[in-house]
Simulated scan of single mutants.
Amino acid sequence: MTDHETADETEFEPSEYDLTIERTFDAPRERVWEAWTDPEQVAQWWGPKGFTVPNCEMDVRPGGSFSIDMEAPDGTIYPDEGVFHEVDEPERLVVTSRAFEDDDGDFQLEVRQTVTFADRDGVTELTLEAEVLTATPEVAEAIDGMEQGWSESLDKLEAYVGQSASDAK
């Protein structure tokens, strides 16, 4: 059992999983923005190490939706879907994602992510804030790894935008 897991639902506090990650990318802000908002590019880096994205659909506009399927190394598909609330190109995205649908069709996890892209003399400072809006104790183990999963995804994004920038030269 992890620190967050508990058998007693009254002790489970989803907000304990909120996190903020800051990362600097050696790539122009517009390049990082495109990698984050173009579904073909998102499919190249999304998900923790070893995961792939067999399906990625995005309608990047306020009120637009997205659907991303992550495939684990063991073949398990983890669907994630949600909606864009704010799209301020190339500075800010606010989305809510929902995952872990139960047998009744209810999502066991809902997270609001705010991603900001700051231009710092040709490099990009990205800040990701993840606020867990709802979570059931059944997904505690999965969200216990949320920070590591985001960190590994951002590692893949860093490699992707660096590679893509060098390919363009």
Score class of each variant (00 low, 15 high):
153 S>L: 04
112 R>Y: 03
19 L>F: 14
155 D>M: 10
103 D>A: 11
35 A>D: 02
130 A>Y: 07
162 G>M: 04
147 E>H: 09
116 T>I: 06
9 E>F: 07
139 V>E: 10
50 G>T: 06
37 T>H: 06
30 E>T: 15
156 K>M: 02
128 L>C: 07
132 V>Q: 08
129 E>N: 12
82 G>R: 04
109 L>T: 11
155 D>K: 09
38 D>K: 07
145 G>P: 05
41 Q>A: 14
72 A>P: 04
139 V>S: 11
66 F>C: 10
46 W>C: 00
58 M>W: 08
115 V>D: 05
69 D>R: 00
144 D>K: 11
17 Y>R: 12
61 R>V: 08
75 G>V: 05
147 E>K: 12
167 D>Q: 09
41 Q>H: 15
39 P>K: 00
85 H>W: 09
106 D>I: 06
55 N>Q: 08
164 S>G: 03
55 N>V: 01
79 P>Q: 05
124 T>I: 03
36 W>I: 01
10 T>A: 13
35 A>L: 02
34 E>W: 01
135 A>S: 11
91 E>F: 10
152 E>D: 11
98 R>I: 08
83 V>C: 10
105 G>N: 08
99 A>V: 01
26 D>K: 09
24 T>W: 05
57 E>F: 00
57 E>P: 00
96 T>N: 10
115 V>T: 15
146 M>E: 06
98 R>W: 13
